[in-house]
Simulated scan of single mutants.
Amino acid sequence: MNERFIIDYQSPIGLIEITGTKAGVYSVLFTERDSLQYPLTEDKPKPLTDCYEQLDQYFNGELETFSFPYIIEGTNFQKNVWTALMDISYGNTGSYKEIAVSIGNEKAIRAVGSANGRNKLCIVIPCHRIIGSNGSLTGYAGGLWRKEWLLDHENKKHVPKQ
């Protein structure tokens, strides 16, 4: 079995826990912990340290697309939804209905929403870019305030951290 490693990343909108192996990152999720529990150390695998560095670049406004190795775990339907999410480019938004249509199942709007909520690679697979078809913010596992911040950040409304 592949040993799993964890690194905490302190973002401007809270602590993010990066989990993975030497082969790739499995999850990038907000945690409600207040303090770092898993610091970045030299013994962490390269996919995790690359993720950490790329998150830093993203939050500094220097990166729009992630390239570190990650491993997507889910059903085929979920993987199709998450792949479609990757087609929503930085600074843009889409709707559950648009994703359902793009995967060839326009009646699966609720299932798309459910898959979106199970995304374990937040920010990397940009589920925060999904908004209601009427333009309103919809649910986000990390909290609507984070979703709003991320969308504003990608539209250059937030000054990157120093």
Rank of each mutant, 00 (worst) to 15 (best):
G94P: 01
D50C: 07
S114H: 12
S67H: 14
R33F: 04
P45Q: 11
F30T: 01
E42G: 09
Q54P: 07
K44L: 05
P12G: 06
T21D: 06
E64T: 13
N119S: 10
P39L: 03
G14K: 10
G117V: 09
F30D: 07
T19L: 05
L63R: 08
T65E: 15
Q57T: 07
T93G: 05
A111E: 12
Q54T: 00
T93L: 03
I18E: 00
L55S: 01
A84H: 03
I88F: 00
Y70C: 11
E106D: 14
Y9V: 00
A84G: 01
K46P: 11
S67Y: 07
E64Q: 13
D43M: 06
V25P: 00
L55Q: 01
D43A: 04
G61S: 02
Y70R: 15
L15Q: 08
F59K: 04
Q37I: 11
E32K: 15
A111R: 11
C51K: 08
N60K: 14
R110W: 15
L85I: 04
I109Y: 07
D8I: 03
F59D: 10
E64R: 12
P39R: 00
E42I: 04
F30R: 03
T41F: 00
M86V: 03
V112N: 04
I103L: 05
E62P: 04
P39H: 02
D56R: 07
L40G: 05
R118Q: 15
A84Q: 07
I109Q: 11
E106I: 14
L63I: 06
K79S: 10
F30P: 10
E106C: 08
N92W: 01
Q10F: 09
I7H: 00
V112H: 03
P69T: 10
N119I: 13
